[in-house]
Design a protein around this nucleic acid. Structure first.
Length: 433
DNA sequence: TCTGGGGTCCTAGGACCC
DNA sequence: TCTGGGGTCCTAGGACCC
């Protein structure tokens, strides 16, 4: 396999480019997408020193005529879909890294479509013609090297690193091109007199280890010597699901923070269910007014995707933080769930809606029973209420009003329904389907 | 220069088990 | 009963990436 068949394709200034396509009057002007911070900006804005990640106030200071537009995520995923479907006509071996970049392994496609260089050129042409977007492409025999090549190729370029030329291409480049070198590592390397990737390759690995630790140093040393055995991975499963929210006004008490945590937990649990996943570990992050932050986590005995169960754990963790750091302002709160699993038998808390019983809320009565999906449907029709990994959490979620209103699909999986929680009786049910 | 939201991976210490 | 070693799981923090 001595052809540069690993392609890295990266859309140029993606969000900004889409904004220009949606509103052509923005073409050729300095423009940034984002509200608090710059998510993406045009190359005209970059000429003024505006860059992604920058605070919008700083961006405006550098470029007073900067036009700022809000992002529209619907349009982004539409364009992204189009672009990736073009990729798919050249190879099924695609690893999507994010909405705007991915790896393509075209080593098996050369007989059909020509050399990697020809494929890269054709992809760029087709993406330009069919979507109006510019995509830069790097090609080599290694993932990390192709990614670097596409960065060097920007904007709107194609760089192929032929086998044998790798080190000559790589070694003059600044260390920050390497995946894994951020501000902290960059500073440490500078202190060691290491500036280029070639400097890393020429350094005694032991002295790197002293400064960076075993993992990071062997990683960087390998990359600097063009070692990167990672294959293209087509389907990567998420390892965590989280949500966070920055808080502007100063708040200090648990009572003020809990509703925000509730909202975030709702979102996370819903996304877990949408992916048909469960989580075992709940992590709560609190960032204080001085921007320092702490995390507290706890692992549950049984995995769950139930809002109530996750919220119980999250609330306890949050309480711990508040007790540990009294009278601290909170500037951000986040929740993350990890230890994700699939396919555990779900435990359902069931309810019958008020229309069925023609009634007002009655006293809740619980009982456990085993039942097949068919039996559930016979007994309750559409009136599934909430589910979790154990009966207690399902019931807690239900009685706290955190339940989702759902119906059973034919495969027995609950499906979200619109409508209010009008339930008057409730029974706990173990789903056996 | 710490401003956003979504993630991954690594390290290190402690608990616990064999 | 103590000492030692190895492995796994959990928790907390930090760096980095898009």
């Amino acid at each position: 396999m001595d052809i540069p068949g690993i392609l890295h394709a990266d859309l140029d200034a993606f969000y900004a480019a889409v904004a220009v396509l949606e509103d052509p009057s923005l073409a050729g002007k300095p423009m940034a997408v984002g509200s608090g911070v710059v998510l993406s900006c045009t190359y005209e804005a970059r000429a003024f020193g505006v860059a992604g990640g920058m605070r919008m106030v700083d961006a405006r200071a550098r470029c007073p005529q900067l036009i700022v537009v809000d992002g529209s995520f619907g349009a982004y995923s539409e364009y992204s879909k189009q672009v990736f479907s073009i990729f798919e006509t050249y190879t099924p071996r695609i690893e999507r890294i994010s909405i705007d970049e991915g790896f393509l392994d075209v080593t098996g496609s050369v007989h059909l479509f020509g050399s990697p260089r020809e494929i890269g050129a054709e992809i760029r042409k087709r993406v330009r013609e069919e979507t109006g977007l510019a995509v830069s492409v790097g090609a080599s025999t290694r993932k990390f090297l192709s990614k670097i090549a596409s960065q060097v190729a920007k904007p709107d370029g194609l760089i192929v690193v032929e086998p044998g030329d790798e080190l000559a291409f790589l070694h003059p480049l600044d260390v920050s091109y390497l995946w894994g070198v951020g501000p902290v590592t960059k500073r440490k390397l500078t202190d060691l007199g290491i500036n280029t990737i070639g400097d890393i390759a020429a350094t005694n690995p032991d002295s790197l280890t002293t400064m960076l630790g075993r993992g990071a140093s062997s990683h960087l040393y390998a990359l600097a010597n063009n070692q990167d055995p990672r294959p293209i991975e087509r389907h990567r499963k998420a390892k965590s699901v989280g949500a966070q929210s920055a808080i502007r006004s100063q708040i200090r008490t648990l009572d003020e923070v809990v509703p925000i945590l509730q909202r975030l937990t709702d979102r996370v649990a819903e996304r877990l269910r949408a992916k048909d996943r469960t989580a075992r570990t709940v992590t709560v992050r609190v960032r204080f007014g001085d921007l320092s932050s702490v995390t507290r986590s706890a692992t549950m005995e049984t995995p769950t995707s139930a809002t109530g169960a996750i919220m119980d754990v999250a609330t306890a963790l949050l309480k711990k933080v508040v007790e540990e750091f009294p009278n601290h302002e909170t500037s951000l709160i986040g929740i993350s769930t990890s230890g994700l699993g699939v396919g555990e038998p779900m435990q359902l808390a069931m309810g019958v809606d008020a229309a069925t019983t023609g009634g007002t809320p009655a006293e809740l009565e619980y009982q456990s029973l085993d039942a097949s999906v068919d039996e559930l449907r016979r007994r309750f029709g559409r009136s599934v209420v909430t589910h979790g990994s154990d009966l207690l959490s399902s019931r807690t979620a239900f009685s706290d009003g955190l339940s989702d209103i759902m119906t059973l699909r034919d495969d027995g999986i609950p499906e979200a329904l619109d409508g209010g929680p009008e339930y008057v009786t409730e029974e706990d049910v173990t789903q056996s389907g």
